[in-house]
Design a protein around this nucleic acid. Sequence first.
DNA 1: AGGATATCAGACAGATCTGTCCAAAATGGC
DNA 2: GCCATTTTGGACAGATCTGTCTGATATCCT
Lengths: 191, 191
Amino acid sequence: MTATRPSARDRLLQAADRLFYAEGVHTVGIDRIIEEAGVAKGSLFYNFAGKDDLVASYLAGRDERRRARIARHTEGLTDPVDKLLAVFDALQEAVGEPGYNGCAFANASAEAAPGSVEAVALRTYRGWFGDLLLRLATEAAYDDPSGVADRLRVIYDGAASGARLDAQPAAVAVAKELARLVLETAPRSAA
Amino acid sequence: MTATRPSARDRLLQAADRLFYAEGVHTVGIDRIIEEAGVAKGSLFYNFAGKDDLVASYLAGRDERRRARIARHTEGLTDPVDKLLAVFDALQEAVGEPGYNGCAFANASAEAAPGSVEAVALRTYRGWFGDLLLRLATEAAYDDPSGVADRLRVIYDGAASGARLDAQPAAVAVAKELARLVLETAPRSAA
DNA sequence: AGGATATCAGACAGATCTGTCCAAAATGGC
DNA sequence: GCCATTTTGGACAGATCTGTCTGATATCCT
């Protein structure tokens, strides 16, 4: 019953997740990652096509975990308005974790070329997130669901952005109150 | 009356502003910049202590122009509430310009080390911006000026962030409406 | 046990990047 | 016109980064 060491691939992904997120995909070189992972350089290129592939896998993992976090906060709720507010709870949880450093997709794509793996990952995440807000706003039967979704997205982005720019997690609480204000004042016909 | 060519220093700053903003301070090397500026490499190190110094000067220029832009939109207005709304007009103008690529400070600092010139420039700008919102909210005699400023900052950041992440300038108009909602509903005693 | 798969250790190549240096030439102010 | 300042062109150094290659070894599945 010896605890088997994780595979080189898993250790690489774990090291990449830590270093890429904390210091940036452009700043951290593969030598740093293989050292942190305790893995031979050859194993990196055996498991991944190159650094870009590792970056893409890192971002895919972040995407998956973010969706899982939001799902965890929304499941069990029945009112779509509560679900929309729970999205901010998910953000608050993320921002409160030690080492929070902003949105991984925003950071990675900030200085990336169009069409790069970072830009593609950003678009994937943003597409899903926008659809989520629109779907919930529609379920909530707002007269203008896309308008409500747009407003919530601005508020959400402001919280995530401000939490990093000012190292100020309190922005999320401010954002959730704003979201509540929007959700309570926006017209709903089919109440 | 031959139009004198700008100095090497000015051409370097102009090239840096264009390339650093469009492609990122980490992505663009000094060779790209001296090529674009049409300047000898020696002239770069004659006029600047190094790349970091050039980056700092680039960001200082962005900071100065952003303050000037906001000043231009707020001057002439007497009501501090109008001035707060005009801050969003300034953002709308910036976002509408061709080649808008998000907040230069947010982008440059996204993958920069703490204490780097990018991080320092970010803090300088954010400090000034936060003070501006708080000062105007105080002048407007809101009961909770810092609360109003916090909410406006979240909204402002969301617009700037979303405009880049989704290549969606319309986020600014959404944000200005949200700001108006906040400014009209927040309690003011000394009206 | 045995064969496919995975990992190791590290040297090496090739590209790129920042920064230095130098002697000559252009420029600008007084 | 003179002298200090600025600019030029380019070679060069030194560091770093991604990716390749090789041959031995370890691990996993059946």
